[in-house]
Simulated scan of single mutants.
Amino acid sequence: MSPLIAILILVALVAVVTAIGLWGRARAAGPRAARADAIAEEIVPADVRGDAATLVQFSTQFCGSCPGVARTLRALAENGVGVAHVEVDITDRPDVAAQLHILQTPTVLLLDRDGVPVSRLTGAAPRSSYVRELSRLLDAAPASVTLPA
Rank of each mutant, 00 (worst) to 15 (best):
L4Y: 13
I5Q: 13
A6D: 13
I7M: 10
I7Q: 01
I9R: 11
L13A: 12
V14W: 12
V16F: 10
V17T: 11
W23I: 10
W23R: 12
G24Y: 10
A29C: 02
G30R: 12
P31H: 12
R32P: 04
R32Q: 12
A33T: 08
R35I: 13
A36Y: 02
A36L: 13
I39Y: 02
E41R: 08
E41C: 06
I43E: 01
I43T: 12
I43G: 02
I43C: 02
I43D: 08
V44L: 01
P45C: 01
G50N: 10
G50D: 09
A52L: 09
A53Y: 01
T54G: 01
V56K: 01
Q57P: 06
Q57S: 08
F58W: 02
F58L: 03
S59W: 07
T60V: 07
T60R: 05
G64W: 06
C66H: 12
P67C: 03
V69F: 03
A70M: 05
R71K: 09
T72Y: 07
T72F: 06
T72W: 06
T72D: 09
L73Q: 09
R74V: 11
A75W: 06
A75M: 06
A75V: 06
L76S: 08
E78V: 15
N79H: 13
G82S: 05
V83Q: 03
A84F: 02
A84R: 04
H85S: 06
I90H: 00
R93C: 02
A97N: 04
A97P: 03
L103A: 09
Q104W: 11
P106S: 04
T107I: 03
V108M: 04
L109P: 04
L110M: 07
D112G: 01
D112E: 01
R113P: 02
R113Y: 05
D114W: 05
P117N: 02
S119F: 03
R120L: 06
T122P: 03
G123C: 15
P126A: 10
P126L: 07
Y130V: 13
R132G: 10
E133Q: 15
E133C: 12
L134I: 07
L134T: 07
S135R: 15
R136L: 14
R136V: 11
L137A: 00
D139N: 13
D139Q: 12
P142Y: 03
P142M: 05
S144G: 09
V145Y: 15
L147H: 13
L147P: 14
L147F: 14
P148G: 14
